[in-house]
């Protein structure tokens, strides 16, 4: 039990470190795209530790408690995340739905805390975040349910092992339409550019984060990095066949994250109604078509 807990904490901490370093590397990549020199690769660490070293203002106990709840909820979620086939803190507790529900704890904490700050822009940001969530969840869920039907299990490591078995392709190849839908949904989940509506620094002053400064913002940054880790590794396990060893995982993770970043950096920003309409139009239709093809017609590559 204790060893499981330690492995879980190690996954959360390692995920945070890995994702933060990767975030810095990606900032560098984007800078090179724009013909700039770019920051150091450990710039994100400096940012986070600087924020933790600052003094901050409190807006009441809900504001403080919500941040801690968000961070705790996200660390708790990350502890269940399988990294490779062997590194898994709680075997048989890595059901896909556990992640869906535990992620909501973190989001809820953040929403609570942001509303507790009393800033109208924070409320607008939270509302937009929830609306975006409603928009991308439905197509994504349809695709994931198709995967669960095909794999016969809803355990994330089980799905990864199913793809590694002989005769089965990765779901990225087996369900090409579903893969496109999942990429779009992942961009919405990570808040990348076309779906960045709920951050929108020039419009609603970074939305939910508008009143945070100092330590609370530092904790939110840590929370954000771990959230990105969870979402991208879920994607790696569901569509890219998981990983046999940790290096394979790192490479797949890097490719997914860097690719999304590159796509995101050539895009503008949608309005919130455009986000919803977008997700309910093509991705939803593609997800439904994919489900029908895969489940009823049995056309799986």
């Amino acid at each position: 039990m204790i060893i499981s807990l330690l492995i879980g904490l190690g996954v959360a901490l390692g995920g945070f470190t890995f994702q933060t370093a990767l975030g810095g590397v990606n900032r560098k990549i984007v800078a090179r795209l724009q013909k700039r020199v770019g920051p150091r690769w450990y710039q994100e660490f400096i940012d986070i530790f600087k924020l933790l070293s600052k003094r901050s203002v409190s807006h009441g106990w809900i504001f403080d408690f919500g941040v801690i709840m968000a961070l705790g909820g996200i660390i708790g979620t990350a502890m269940f995340m399988p990294v490779t086939s062997n590194i898994l803190a709680f075997p048989s507790f890595d059901n896909f739905f556990i992640f869906v529900y535990l992620l909501a704890v973190g989001m809820l904490g953040m929403a609570m805390s942001a509303s507790g700050s009393g800033n109208p822009l924070a409320s607008i940001g939270v509302m937009r975040a929830l609306t975006t969530m409603v928009a991308y969840e439905i197509p994504f869920m349809i695709v994931v349910l198709t995967i669960i039907k095909l794999a016969g299990t809803s355990s994330v490591s089980g799905i990864a092992e199913f793809q590694q078995m002989a005769g089965n392709n990765w779901f990225m190849i087996a369900l090409p339409l579903g893969f496109v839908v999942a990429v779009l949904s992942l961009m919405g989940m990570l808040g990348k550019k076309p779906f960045e509506t709920y951050i929108a620094p020039a419009e609603i002053a970074s939305g939910p984060m508008v009143e945070y400064g100092g330590k609370q913002l530092g904790m939110l940054f840590i929370m954000h990095e771990i959230t990105v880790f969870i979402e991208v590794s879920l994607f790696v396990h569901l569509f890219l066949g998981g990983a046999e060893n940790i290096w394979m995982f790192a490479i797949k993770y890097f490719l997914v994250y860097a690719g999304l970043n590159l796509v995101s950096n050539v895009n503008g920003r949608f309005k919130i109604d455009q986000v919803v309409v977008f997700f309910y139009k093509w991705p939803l239709a593609m997800a439904v078509v994919q489900a029908i093809i895969a489940i009823y017609l049995g056309w799986v590559i």
Binding site: V57, P201, G213, L217
Partner: peptide, 8 residues
């Protein structure tokens, strides 16, 4: 940065 709280 977007807001005074976040800025240095």
């Amino acid at each position: 940065m977007a807001t005074p709280r976040q800025a240095d």
